[in-house]
Simulated assay, not measured.
Amino acid sequence: MTQTLRIGTRASLLARTQSGQIADLIAERLGVEVELVDVTTEGDISRAPLHTLGGTGVFVSALRDALLDGRVDVAVHSLKDLPTGAAEGIALAAVPPREDPRDVLVARDGLTLGELPVGSVVATGSPRRASQLHALGLGLEIVGLRGNIDTRLGKVTSGAADGVVLARAGLSRINRLDVVTETIDPIQMLPAPGQGALAIECRAEDTTLEAQLREHLDDPFTRAAVEAERAVLRTLEAGCSAPVGALAEIVEEADGPEVWLRAVALAPDGSVDIRRSASGPLAEAAEVGNRLAAGMLEEGAAELIDSPARRQQS
């Protein structure tokens, strides 16, 4: 492999930063020249709330198109943005070690969620975060939010909001953890499936490149954890913007590593939630997620989520 490897990325600061980190790893470990190629996605163009843009993949489809038509050789995504179904002609070559998957609060005056006065305005663009904030019963006013990280943080510094909730991983990757006023315990707010992880894709026909990426960049523990979490979404037929949270951890047991998985599905206003946990061997990560989600469906999770896929079937 002597040609320059073209790595597709969204053009935002966060996307280019995390893609640049992956590019550096590829250059070092595969011994190739690399080049970042900016790709504009539907999610970058539209200013509408993400959950109104027609489902999953709004940050992904254009990058995959660029792969398939040969403009790029590798695509780097935030894994939580990936649709759960397989994409024809695309291989998920590697899932590198994950950043901290938790959500964080950035609030005025260094306040935590529990310290914000009743009626405080907290902004988030995520139905999952909004529903879990409502479920805490803190009397907060939850409002929508779009834009890059600086735009979101600006809501607090300008006084337009008392706080915003973001993914810790994104702030970590751009060295902005100093603005965090609270890292939110998953007991209070389970993260999005796949949050904090990156996905490295290539064309399925590029089997040599796929094998090299997997050998040199894939972390099997992170891959198993996100497989379990994404299996919950897939079985629930919920999109990446649905009010569903899931977090899997890998725990060493006497018989080998196991996946410990927690998940929640909520009504949009947080008034009802269904929470379950499950565990199983590392090699059965997806089955752990399937089994957990099946139990949630038996308890009525489909009615809480009201996903587009389920509305079309009804």
Rank of each mutant, 00 (worst) to 15 (best):
D81V: 07
D69G: 02
V58G: 01
G70W: 01
S78T: 12
L82Y: 00
L68I: 12
L67W: 03
D73A: 06
V76E: 10
L67A: 00
D73I: 09
H77T: 03
D69N: 10
V76R: 10
A75G: 08
A86M: 09
D69F: 06
V74R: 08
D65N: 13
V58F: 03
L82S: 00
D73S: 07
V58H: 10
H77M: 05
L67E: 05
L68T: 06
S61K: 15
G85M: 00
V76Y: 10
T56H: 11
G70N: 02
P83V: 14
F59C: 00
G57R: 11
V60N: 05
P83C: 11
P83F: 01
T84A: 12
S61R: 15
A62P: 01
L68V: 09
L68H: 06
A66V: 06
H77R: 00
F59P: 02
L82D: 05
A86S: 13
V58W: 04
K80D: 15
V74L: 11
V76Q: 11
L79G: 06
A75N: 06
L67C: 01
L67F: 03
K80M: 08
L79T: 07
V72A: 04
A86I: 08
L68W: 05
D81S: 14
A75W: 03
F59E: 04
S78N: 14
V60Y: 07
S78D: 13
V74I: 15
A86K: 11
L67G: 02
L82Q: 07
V74T: 10
T56W: 11
L79R: 14
L68N: 04
A75P: 01
S78P: 13
R64Y: 07
D73G: 09
S61T: 15
L79C: 12
V60D: 06
L82N: 07
G57H: 09
R71Y: 01
T56G: 15
S78F: 11
F59R: 12
L68K: 08
L67T: 01
L82A: 05
L68D: 07
V72S: 04
L79P: 02
A86V: 11
D65W: 09
S78H: 14
A86N: 10
V76S: 11
A87Q: 13
L79D: 14
V74F: 04
G57P: 02
L79Y: 14
L67V: 01
H77K: 00
L63M: 09
G57K: 12
T56Y: 08
V74D: 03
D69V: 06
D69M: 03
A62W: 07
D65P: 00
A75V: 07
T84E: 07
L68G: 04
G57C: 13
V74E: 05
A86L: 12
V74M: 10
S78Y: 06
A66D: 02
K80F: 09
R71K: 06
G85H: 10
S78E: 11
K80C: 12
L79E: 15
H77D: 04
A86R: 12
A75I: 04
G57W: 04
D69Q: 02
F59V: 00
T56F: 08
D73E: 12
D81I: 02
V72N: 05
G85E: 13
F59L: 07
L67Q: 03
G70T: 04
L68E: 05
D65L: 11
G85K: 04
P83K: 05
D69P: 02
K80H: 13
S78Q: 13
A62Y: 05
